[in-house]
Design a protein around this nucleic acid. Structure first.
Length: 586
RNA sequence: GCGCCUGUAGCUCAGUUGGAUAGAGUGUCAGUUUCCGAAGCUGAAGGUCACAGGUUCGACUCCUGUCAGGCGCGCCA
């Protein structure tokens, strides 16, 4: 519709210029906006004001000329000039009703478009370290990432959802060592658990499982384990050195194979919990990509060799540094530590190059906002490798600050004090949690009040939207109880009977849906869709209270039933994109 | 100190990429069912869009500065 308006305005303008009614102009992009106020018609165009300066004419004067030159169309009944020079268009009733048929014909596919033209997009999100269960902080990334993915795929992009598993590196070694020490305790050994180890209950569970399955296979004397290990922080030492020494001891005493078994027991246990949690949360992936596989395939080493070859790395203090300052980063970054170990950054360079090589047109990373300082160096590494930096988009998700009532909840994975995503889902429900997370724009800090979410979950706006859907279903239940039926063809025939203000508002709202989807997809803003659904639900509830759908006037009744079926379809489609269910009863 | 994000109603937040009289939810108050689900609907009250300049037909939106909050600045991941 907007496109059609744009066309007729454009032809009118070129006509005016060739008639010399207007001087030669550089035509800007013609903007068509939906009006906020019903009294301004359905669509508004500000072109007259934009041209006023160039043409050295009064905007209202331009608008008058333009209107006279507009061709006759069936879909517009009225054109007005308003305010400083807005041109307002009012849609004909026929054109407005057309949307109801369009919705019903497209069904579940209503809202889909070819905007993406089949271009491929990879979306990587959540990607939490498998050192513990997912907590509520990860929930926002999961809800946002999957909503963005669904939006893109609805808008015609080919989407590849991916979880990057950090199954290598020091944090995982700390986890493996934590598990082993808990295992030793489970086997009756007495020891002081390191202050920097993972203290969550899940570590005990994993340790006990190992004991059940493997017995005392991995038991070593505690005296040997702690022999010549640097002091821990509470004892006046350095907690980092302490845990690093313990890791070395674990690897040494257990040997490669046994250490790997303990390591994998922890990794697999936690990873399978994470997969389960995400799946239950309605978040599914095409691929789980292992960091370790990059290392084992030698990709990381290869990248380092390549960077050395083009003089992008230099040695200093026994470590190898990447010249990221040449690409605008604040300082150069270490990729190989002086102990020979590659850093997380090194594998991340390899990972991103690998993403590029897989040929995605666009690569999207969704990170917690605390990682924003990391963006320049990743982009720098891509530039250094001669890749197009614009293909990578990093979307940041601000933290949700947790509250219990008015009290802030402290969160720390290491200390094991947090609310898990699973607890949240079990108490609040998947639908409410997902909708709540996606209701705010991602770059907005968010307060997440657990008390509110748990105890007063009926206040969650998701129920308002779902209720609209359930209400439509309920009307149809009532219909069949009265021995009546809805006839789609008859209803579509009678759409011209829908003349009430409420009905027109709903039809206008329905026609906005495809625009909302596209806009939300292109801007990565699922909250637009959430707000749209609330608006649509409100229009429906208002309509419901103002008018009866099952009435004696047969044609009118059929037309109204047709309209609310379209509403139900759009709500169901929209909630589906957000990963929220649309129940028939509540 | 430098960088990124944010500042809109008592509270939680939108604001269609610069448009018309700044909007919802929640909370408060007042109404609403012999009628398809009251998890609903109707109305009232509530604002110096942090502050000060600038850009133009027009600014919550763009630019500069100030103030306030969050986050980040490791041979951690």
């Amino acid at each position: 519709m907007k496109e059609q308006l744009r066309q007729i305005i454009k032809t009118a303008l070129t006509q005016l210029i060739s008639q010399k009614s207007l001087p030669e102009l550089v035509l800007p992009e013609i903007q068509i906006d939906r009006t906020k106020d019903k009294s301004h018609g359905d669509f508004a165009c500000n072109i007259a004001m934009m041209l006023a300066r160039q043409a050295k004419m009064n905007p209202r004067q331009i608008a008058t000329l333009l209107i006279e030159e507009l061709p006759e169309t069936k879909f517009i009944t009225q054109v007005d000039i308003a305010g400083p020079g807005f041109i307002n268009f009012t849609l004909s009733a026929d054109a407005a009703q057309e949307i109801v048929k369009t919705v019903l014909q497209a069904g579940e596919q209503f809202g889909q478009s070819q905007l993406g033209a089949g271009k491929s997009v990879q979306v990587e999100f959540v990607s939490a370290n498998p050192t513990g269960p997912l907590h509520v902080g990860h929930g926002r990334g999961a809800a946002y990432g999957s909503a963005v993915s669904n939006l893109l795929s609805t808008a015609g992009f080919k989407v590849h959802r991916e979880y990057y598993v950090n199954d290598a590196g020091r944090q995982m070694d700390i986890l493996a060592t934590s598990v082993w020490l808990r295992y030793l305790e489970a086997c009756g050994e007495k020891l002081v658990f390191p202050s920097n180890g993972y203290k969550g209950d899940y570590v005990l569970t994993i340790a006990n499982d190992i004991k059940t399955e493997q017995g005392d296979t991995f038991v070593k004397a505690v005296a040997d384990v702690f022999e010549s290990v640097a002091a821990d922080e509470p004892a006046g030492g350095d907690k980092e050195q302490h845990i690093d020494d313990l890791i070395a001891k674990a690897q040494d005493l257990l040997g490669d194979e046994a250490y790997r078994q303990v390591f994998d027991a922890g990794l697999q246990s936690i990873l399978s919990e994470i997969r389960q949690d995400l799946s239950d949360f309605g978040t599914d992936y095409e691929e789980w990509f292992s960091e370790r596989s990059l290392m084992e395939m030698g990709v990381v080493d290869k990248v380092i060799t390549q960077l050395k070859a083009v003089d992008m790395l230099y040695e200093q203090g026994g470590a190898w540094w990447f010249r990221s300052t040449q690409f605008g980063d604040e300082k150069d970054r270490v990729v190989v530590r002086n102990n020979g170990q590659t850093t997380y950054f090194a594998s991340d360079i390899a990972y991103h190059l690998n993403k590029y090589q897989r040929g995605f047109d666009t690569v999207i990373d969704i990170w917690g906002s605390d990682h924003h300082g990391y963006i320049p160096r990743v982009k720098a590494s891509l530039a250094a490798a001669g890749e197009d930096v614009e293909r990578l988009k990093v979307l940041l998700v601000q933290f949700a600050v947790l509250y219990r009532g008015s009290e802030k909840v402290a969160m720390s994975t290491r200390s094991g004090q947090f609310v898990t995503l699973r607890e949240l889902r079990e108490e609040v429900g998947k639908d409410a949690a997902r909708f709540f997370y996606v209701l705010r724009s991602a770059d907005q800090h968010m307060d997440f009040d657990l008390e509110l979410a748990k105890s007063q979950s009926n206040d969650n706006p998701v129920y308002y939207v779902q209720y609209a859907h359930a209400r439509v279903c309920s009307v149809f239940r009532e219909l069949s109880e009265r021995g009546l039926a809805w006839d789609k063809a008859e209803g579509e025939q009678a759409l011209s009977r829908l003349t009430e203000e409420h009905e027109q508002a709903i039809m206008s709202m329905l026609s906005r849906y495809p625009e909302v989807i596209n806009s939300a997809a292109v801007n990565y803003t699922p909250h637009l869709l959430a707000h749209y659904l609330m608006d649509l639900a409100r229009d429906f509830h208002t309509y419901y209270n103002a008018h009866q759908f099952i009435v004696d006037d047969h044609g009118l009744s059929q037309a109204r039933l047709t309209l609310i079926t379209a509403v139900k379809q759009v709500i169901s489609n929209g909630l589906g994109v957000l990963g929220v269910s649309a129940p028939g009863t509540m």
